[in-house]
């Protein structure tokens, strides 16, 4: 991927809290018009990375490029095109929802009609007059999203945006993100510790573990990685008997039950050959199927090993 094709890119990003290293050589590559799922378990360094992308923290080494420009040199200019929601939204409890949006709108120097538009977009038009301290967690999260959407940003950085949302709210958020990408061409960097949430919306994925990027690529590449780890599972009367009768075909099989064998899947021909051989040997086939690890299994596997990219 050419450098100039990336809307957000970090190179060799390192960060330390005092002497404790937190991030090691993070090289994010976010193409324009993508929804980039930034995955990792709690404490892996997602929020710290997001803060570095906004200039809230200074890296010990490395650079952040937004829209092809160095963030450290052009922070104020570049942030005018970025909307962000970092962890819990920063809201003033003594102000109403509308007044909160107004405060940010004035800071950004945007026209007044944007306040009404973003409140409508996140479904808070009717609650805009209520004090934020009376808001539920989900309403606060939606108001935080409204603040992020206020400048109609080209890049949205959302850190765990579904925190506190009920299932309906999560679905609405998902729909909104997809619309923003598909209809408005927005680029969205979305962090989460839940693969199930990311796989429904993301086009690209980065996985971070203990401050290191352990996977980065398209969602299809992650799914392909799963395909490489497909197993063939045979249910029969006696797994031991089958293994003794067909040592060539089943030498690498693992016994996972008295009647169950599990072996690496290679090709569809392998399935046909095995089925024929079992029938020829007079062994019953109760089941013969492929099993793939779920994306969640892949994610867990990635985050359990620490081999960085």
């Amino acid at each position: 991927m050419a450098v100039s094709d990336l809307l957000l890119e970090t190179q060799g990003l390192h960060f330390c809290f005092g002497k404790r290293p937190i991030l090691h050589d993070i090289g994010l590559q976010v193409p324009p018009g993508s929804i980039y799922g930034f995955l990792g378990p709690n404490g892996a360094g997602k929020s710290t990375t997001m803060r570095l992308l906004l200039g809230l923290l200074r890296p010990a080494a490395g650079t952040v490029q937004l829209f092809g420009h160095d963030l450290a040199r052009h922070q104020v200019a570049l942030l005018s095109r970025v909307g962000a929601l970092i962890e819990n939204p920063s809201l003033y409890g003594h102000l109403t929802g509308r007044e909160n949006v107004e405060a940010t709108r004035r800071l950004r120097g945007l026209p007044a009609h944007r306040t009404t538009e973003v409140l409508a977009l996140v479904g808070l038009s009717n609650s805009g007059g209520r004090l934020v301290k009376e808001y539920s967690l989900g309403m606060r999260q939606r108001l935080g999203l409204a603040l992020a959407l206020l400048p109609d940003p080209d890049l949205l950085l959302l850190d765990e945006p579904t925190n506190g949302l009920d299932p309906n709210g999560i679905m609405e958020m998902r729909g909104l993100l997809l619309r923003l990408r598909q209809e408005h061409g927005k680029t969205i960097l979305l962090s989460s510790h839940l693969i199930s949430e990311i796989e429904k919306v993301a086009t690209h994925v980065g996985v971070i573990q203990q401050g290191r990027l352990v996977f980065q690529g398209s969602l299809a590449a992650l799914q392909h990685r799963q395909a490489d780890q497909t197993w063939l599972v045979l249910d029969t009367a006696s797994a031991d008997t089958c293994r003794n009768l067909l040592p060539q075909l089943l030498s690498g099989a693992l016994l996972t039950g008295p009647g169950t064998l599990r072996l690496p899947f290679s090709t569809p021909d392998q399935v046909a050959t095995l089925a024929q051989a079992l029938v020829a040997a007079g062994q019953p086939i109760y089941g013969l199927r492929q099993e793939q690890p779920s994306l969640e299994d892949t994610f867990l596997q990635l985050t359990e090993t620490s081999t960085a990219l």
Binding site: F67, G68, A77, L95, E102, A103, R106, L107, G109
Partner: peptide, 29 residues
Amino acid sequence: PPHWATLPAAPGALTQLRRCLAADYGKLY
């Protein structure tokens, strides 16, 4: 360069201060 690579103009220092003041007055409410 792609259309999104144009560097937007940064608001001037006085404009930034004016915007901050407007927001801070609102927060006093």
